[in-house]
Every structure is written in C-alpha cells, then in structure tokens.
Amino acid sequence: MNVPETNRSDALLTVSGLVKRFPARNGRTVHAVEDVSFEIRRGTTVGLVGESGSGKTTAGRTLLRLIEPTEGQAIFDGVDIFALPEKQMRAYRQRMQIIFQDPFSSLNPRMRVEAIIGEALDACNFPKGERRKARIGELLTLVGLQPEHGRRFPHEFSGGQRQRIGIARALAVEPEFVVADEPVSALDVSVQAQVLNLLSDLQQRLGLTLLFIAHDLSVVEYLCDEVVVMYLGRIMERGPARAVYGSPRHPYTKALLATAPVPDPTRKRTRVPLQGDIPSPIDPPSGCVFRTRCPHAIDACAQTVPQAEHIGENHHVACIRQSELAVAS
C-alpha cells in the first residue's frame, strides 16, 4: 500500500490504499481502482487525470461513498469516512458534494431550476418561504445567472448555463469539498474557459477544496495545484502541477502531455507515441499495467508492480525505469 504523507495539518482528505472492484460475469472481477493513495490540502485543487477507463470517475465517486469501496481508507478532516455507518455518514454529505459531467441529464427536465436547487436545500433542512427564495437567488447570482432564472426549466438554458445550475446546486449546502467530475468535457471549447474561470473564482472566494477529474491535461494545468495521473486503476505519477508539467517522469504522463493542446505557439512538446487502446480492467496486464503501451517497457516490467517512488517535493512516480529514463532524457 502506497501511503502519502499525512503529517501535514492542512490535509483535508487523505486517501490510502483505495481499492474498488466490481463483480463481472463468469466469476471474473473488474479492477476499477487498485491501491490509490493521495491527499488533498485544504483550499487547493487536485486534478485527477487519465484516459477514459482509467478509473478516475470511480475513484471520485467512491470518495463520496456514492459507490462503496472494496478496501482502503479516506480520512476526511480526521475521520475515516469509509468506516462510518450510513447514519453517521449523512452528517458528512453536506460537507462533500459533486458536480456531474453532463449538465443536462443531471438536471430533472420536469423541475424548475428553483426546485432543483431547492432539493439540495431540503437535504440540510433549509426553511421554506422567502428566505429560501432569497437563498436560491443568491446561488444563481453566485454562478453568473439571474435570480429570475429560477422559474425556468433546464431545457431553456445553454449547456454552459445548465452546468452553472449544477454548480449552484452543489454549493447550496455550503460544502467544504467538491468533486468536479469532468464538468467541462461536454461543453464547447469557448464555454469551457468560462466555466473554468467560474470554478477558479469560486474556489478562491469560498475557500473550497476541489478534486477536478478530467482527461484533458491542458484543462488541469490551468486550474490545479497538484496533479494525480491514473491509468487502468493505478496512479502512475502525482505531484505539484509545476513539477508534473515542467518535468514529467512517467512515460504515460509524457504521452498525455504530448497530445494535449498548447495555447502558446512558441512552446513545443516532444511527441511520445501512445499506441493501442487501454486494456480491459477485467484482465489487466501483469506487473506495470501501462507496459503493453509503453515504448520503454522491458521484461522486468511484466514481473513487478511498480511502487510510487519519491523524487522530490511530494513528486512521486510509479515506474521501475524512471531513474534511467530521467538520465536518458
């Protein structure tokens, strides 16, 4: 089990040895998340990135116990929330919220916006009447909409506006920790920047702690303080954003960065070929799960599951060849 440093008092959430497996047909098992460990400091944004099928959404939802973990610990403000009975967990749900990927399917099309946000307020027994109406208006204003928008239905809004409604709903109960599950991937590029700016502003104004899930490393670079790179359920690399982007050490991280768009035409990235598709989590490769697509794989990569190696300033890499590859580069 790779356990991150936990002696820092500013850690709001420390995840250790998180495992999530699902039963499949014929007695087989889906290895969705395997031995994932990292921490999130209060008031910061951590990006959880990787291709589709890497397990990042499963990890995020498991941390909120929308999906129950198979193994592991999640220490939230000093309490292992994985060990809490459901009745005690309810008290923590107000402190932990989620913004979903699809801003349309996550909103009930038959309900007005004020009722959608009102459902979240019901969860914390917020009083009805004029006080609730004012609170809903405040939330809509907070996310860049108008109070009168509360009388409309979701289909009357654009995709970006619907995502703002989803953000308002998540913030209704004044959470400390928010999981943003690919909140801009379903939006046009021109709208993505607006929503990212909104999330960045809200994070600073409200002191939120964010876990931002994405497959686009360029999005994470803009928003996040630290980055966790996942592949087929395992962490390949994690560390401060400036270290991961400035000096990526894992071949998978380098490959993702090579395919990410660069807004500055004067900057160039070395192209690293990433061949084939991500393997099935039902039958993951032995040893390093990335070895079947890694241009630097050797026979030993099939024999050993690499452990996270500390290479400085909370920067960790899970690759048995990272030292020699760093010298070669």
Rank of each mutant, 00 (worst) to 15 (best):
T259E: 15
I298C: 12
L140C: 03
L66A: 08
V19F: 12
V36K: 00
C224E: 06
A297Y: 07
R242V: 10
L66M: 09
A83K: 14
V179R: 02
L210W: 15
V189F: 07
K87D: 11
P127K: 00
A258G: 15
E226R: 15
E71W: 04
T141H: 12
T45H: 07
R8L: 13
V179Y: 04
F76K: 07
G276Y: 03
H215W: 11
S329F: 14
V191E: 13
L223F: 12
P183W: 03
G160P: 12
S185E: 12
V179C: 04
C319A: 03
L48M: 12
Q161N: 11
Q194D: 06
C294V: 02
P281C: 00
I98V: 13
L202I: 11
I81R: 03
N314D: 15
R152T: 01
A120L: 12
A59Q: 08
L199P: 11
V195M: 11
G137R: 06
R267Y: 06
D299E: 11
L64V: 00
G239Q: 08
E156A: 14
G50Q: 00
D35M: 06
A308D: 12
A326R: 14
A318I: 02
E174K: 15
A168D: 07
T57R: 05
V113I: 13
L196Y: 12
E68C: 08
A326H: 15
A32C: 02
L107Y: 05
A302R: 08
E324Y: 04
P69F: 01
A32G: 05
F212T: 05
I98G: 00
F104H: 14
A214C: 09
G50M: 04
G27Y: 13
R267E: 11
D80W: 07
P261K: 06
G27L: 15
A241G: 02
H155E: 13
P273D: 09
S218P: 03
L64M: 00
F100I: 01
R90H: 14
L107D: 10
K133D: 07
S185G: 11
S323T: 06
R152L: 02
Y92A: 06
E119R: 13
S286A: 13
P85M: 03
Y231C: 13
P306E: 02
L210F: 15
A186S: 14
E138V: 01
K56Y: 14
L63Q: 10
P285Y: 07
H310A: 11
D35C: 10
E313T: 08
N125L: 11
D80A: 10
F126I: 00
R135V: 04
R169Q: 02
V36S: 08
P69G: 01
C124F: 05
A308H: 11
R293Y: 05
N7D: 15
H250K: 13
H296V: 09
D201E: 14
T270M: 10
K133R: 15
Q73I: 10
E86V: 06
A302N: 05
R152A: 07
P251T: 09
F290G: 04
A297D: 10
P251G: 01
T292Y: 03
L325Y: 09
C301K: 00
R110W: 03
R162K: 08
A243L: 15
L66D: 12
L256H: 07
V15A: 01
Y222E: 03
R321N: 15
F177C: 00
T209S: 09
R234H: 05
F212I: 05
G118P: 01
T6R: 15
P109S: 00
V79Y: 13
A258E: 01
L63V: 10
L223P: 01
S54D: 09
V173R: 12
